[in-house]
Amino acid sequence: MERQISMNPKRDLRKRRLNFENFYAYLIMALPLLIVYLIFFFIPSISSFFISFTNYNGISLDFDMVGLKNYQTMLQDQVFRASFTNTFVFTIVVSLLQNLLSLLTALGLNARIRMRGAIRTMIFAPVLINAVVTAYIWTYIFDTNGLINTLLRAVGLGGLAQTWLGNPDYALGCVIVAHVWRFIGYSALIYLANLQSISSDVLEAAEIDGAVGWKRFRYVVFPLLAPATTINIITSIAGTFKVFDIIFAMTEGGPGNATETIATYIVRNMNENLYGYAAAISIALFFIILVINVFVYGFLKKRETQV
C-alpha cells in the first residue's frame, strides 16, 4: 500500500489538480462502502419510489405503470388506516411508558442502594434478548393458561381471566408491555449516565436554596436530564415507528387487524405479492418518519437550549 516514491508533500498539496495523494487515495478508501451502500441500500431505496407507481407483483417483469393508484388505494384502505392508528398508539404509549419507567429506574439505581451492580445487570439483561424470544415469552404470559391467568385464579379473580392476545381490546396493550419490558434497561442506562454526570455542587446548592424532594427533581434534576431525554425519545420513536419483529412474532397483526402496524402491513402485502402496493406503503412510512423526526427533534433541541 505504501508509496515508494518520496516526494515533497507540501508542494504536492498546493497543486490544484486531482492526484493520487489528495483525491484518489481517499476515493479508494471510501469506495468499498460506497459500492455496498449503493447496491444494498441506496439504489433499492430509490427504486422503491419507482415500484410504488407500478402494479409489480414480484414474479413477472411485465408490469404496468399505474400512476398514483397505489397511493389512492392506500387512502381508502381500512386496514392501512387501522395500521396507521395502531402504529401511532404503539409509538406514543411505548415512548411515554418506557421513558417514565426507565427514568424512575435510573433514579433508583442512582440512589445509595445495595447490590446495585446485580440489580442493574438484571434490569439490563432483556436488552440482549431478540424480539422473537421476547414475543414467545410474553405469548405464554398472556396465554389462556398462562402466567397472568394462573395468578388471577390463584388470588380468586379467575373471572378476569381471558385470552388476552385474542381480545382486540387488549392485544395491542400486551405487545406494548412486551416491547417496553425489553427496552427499559437500555433507556435507564442512558438516564443513569446523565444523572451521574450532574455535579454534586449543583445538587447541594439547590438543597441550600430549599429545593428538596419533588421540587429538587422537578426544577433541578429533570431539566438537567434534557440530553438523555432527547436521546431516549428519539431512539424510542425511531425504533417503534418501524416496529415489525415483536408484533409479527407475537400476533402477526391479529386478532383482526388489532395489532397491525405499518411495517407488518408492508410485509403482509409482500407475502400476497402486492409488491407495488407494499412499496407505496413503505414510501408513506418514510415520509411519516421524516416529518415526525424533524418535528420532535426540533422540539426537543429547543427544549434543551431553553434550560
Binding site: 431505496s45 422503491s48 414480484g58 415507528f241 415489525f244 409482500m270
Partner: peptide, 19 residues
Amino acid sequence: FLAGLVIPPQVTLVPLVVW
C-alpha cells in the same frame, strides 16, 4: 450515507427481493 438514518429499512425490502 446519513440518509440511512431517516430511511426505514422497510423501504428497501421490496426492491431488495427483486434486486
